[in-house]
């Protein structure tokens, strides 16, 4: 099963994206418990793009594909914005006490925790992020 959605780079699109993920999991007959983790990994990745890929008030699109092959869910997130490799960001140190924890920097960490692989490439002026989650039915 394979579906795609195109969003504008504005967080008002998030409810539509969350519904897209929920419907995909339901229609692919994947366990319902996967809805929240997949929504979370996608929200974190897409919001980063919405906030940083298109500087200033520049408008841009984000294309998201979800594919299920009875073994894994593969999520492809593409944008035409500024080159950014999430792999270049160091993991948040979650062992620190509250006083020393940074207020931000958790989004990419959460995505890495949920997904089995997070891959990035830059091709034809596009950022391409590929998130894979193995599904154990």
């Amino acid at each position: 099963m394979n579906r795609r959605i195109t969003l504008h780079n504005d967080t008002y699109e998030l409810p539509r994206l969350m519904s897209f993920v929920e419907e995909f999991v339901h229609d692919a007959e994947i366990a319902n418990e996967m809805v929240m983790p997949l929504q979370l990994a996608i929200e974190e990745s897409v919001v980063n793009i919405m906030h940083y890929a298109y500087p200033g008030q520049e408008s841009g699109d984000i294309e998201i594909g979800m594919e299920y092959n009875h073994h894994s869910v593969v999520i492809t997130i593409e944008d035409y914005g500024v080159a950014f490799d999430p792999g270049s960001v160091a993991d948040a140190d979650i062992s620190l006490p509250a006083e020393e924890r940074e207020i931000g920097g958790l989004g990419i960490f959460i995505t890495r925790q949920i997904m089995d692989t997070v891959e990035y490439c830059r091709r034809c002026e596009k950022n391409i992020l590929i998130l894979t989650k193995i599904i154990n039915k």
């Binding site: 929240m36 979370l40 974190e44 919001v47 509250a98 006083e99 924890r101 207020i103 931000g104 958790l106």
Partner: peptide, 17 residues
């Protein structure tokens, strides 16, 4: 509360501090 993302966690941590 059904769902929390890093944006929510940021608010909770900031408030805790």
């Amino acid at each position: 509360l059904e769902y929390v993302s890093s944006a929510g966690l940021r608010v909770i941590l900031a408030s805790h501090k």
